[in-house]
Every structure is written in C-alpha cells, then in structure tokens.
Computed example of a mutant assay.
Amino acid sequence: MEIKIPKEVHKHKETIFFGLTARQFFCAVAAVGLAAGVYLGLGPVIGRDTASWVCILAAAPLAVAGFFHYNGMTLEQFVWAVVKSELLFAGDRPFASENFYYDLLHRKGGQDFD
C-alpha cells in the first residue's frame, strides 16, 4: 500500500466527492442548478434549442469559478485584486521619501547638519 504525499504540503487539497475539492464540488452543483433553472424557465419562452445554449452560457462562469486559480488566488480574490489595481487605486503614485532620523534630530533640538 502506497500513500502519496505531495512535495509541497501547502498545495494539498482534500477531496470530498468525485475527486473534487469542496469549492469545486459546490460550484459544480450550483452551475448545474443554475443551468436547470435557466433551461426550465426559458425553455417554453424562447424554445428548448436556444434555451440549452443560454443555460450553457449562464452556467459556465460559475463552473469555472470552482477551478480557477491564479498565483494562489481564487476567482473572487483575483477579480478583487484587478478592481483594486485598475479602478480604486489607479493613477499616478508619486514617490516621496522621508528620512525619519533626520526629522527626529531636528524636532528634538539635536545637532543641525545643514
């Protein structure tokens, strides 16, 4: 009997069902539920053929969200990082250095180096 131990312990993912992690499993179940709801809701309205394509397009992002990892970030963390860097904190970031020791000497009445 052989037990496989990953080389990097932090990359270990515990599987719960069909070899999927909990995140992957719940995203897959939610995607199937969303696809069924879209198909049953839109099938009589726009036709079953078109509704099947719409349900695939609706469920795909939710299914991908469970498997997405980029630089150790999940999809939500990645989207938040992009929003912060491109929208919230976008713009010029001027560099201004401060010499704390120089300021400390001048505030305390120490020696003047000018």
Results as ranks from 00 to 15, higher is better:
Asp114Leu: 04
Asn99Tyr: 14
Gly66Phe: 00
Leu20Tyr: 07
Ala58Asp: 02
Phe95Asp: 12
Leu20Glu: 04
Gly66Ile: 00
Ala58Lys: 02
Ala90Ser: 08
Ala65Tyr: 02
Leu57Trp: 07
Arg107Thr: 08
Leu57His: 02
Met73Cys: 06
Leu88Asp: 08
Cys27Arg: 00
Cys27Leu: 03
Glu86Asn: 11
Ala63Trp: 02
Cys55Glu: 04
Val54Phe: 05
Gly47Asn: 05
Glu86Arg: 09
Pro44Leu: 10
Glu8Asn: 14
Ala90Gln: 02
His12Trp: 10
Lys11Gln: 14
Pro6Leu: 08
Glu2His: 06
Tyr70Leu: 11
Val38Lys: 03
His106Asn: 08
Leu40Thr: 14
Lys13Tyr: 10
Ser85Lys: 10
Val82His: 12
Val29Ser: 08
Val83Phe: 12
Val45Ala: 13
Lys11Thr: 10
Val45Gln: 13
Lys7Ala: 15
Phe67Thr: 04
Ala35His: 03
Met1Leu: 07
Asp103Ile: 03
Gly47Leu: 05
Phe17Pro: 00
Gly110Met: 06
Asn71Thr: 00
Phe25Arg: 03
Lys108Ile: 13
Gly33Glu: 13
Val83Lys: 09
Gly110Leu: 10
Asn99Phe: 14
Arg93Ser: 13
Phe67Cys: 07
Ala28Phe: 06
His12Cys: 07
Val64Asn: 11
Met1Thr: 03
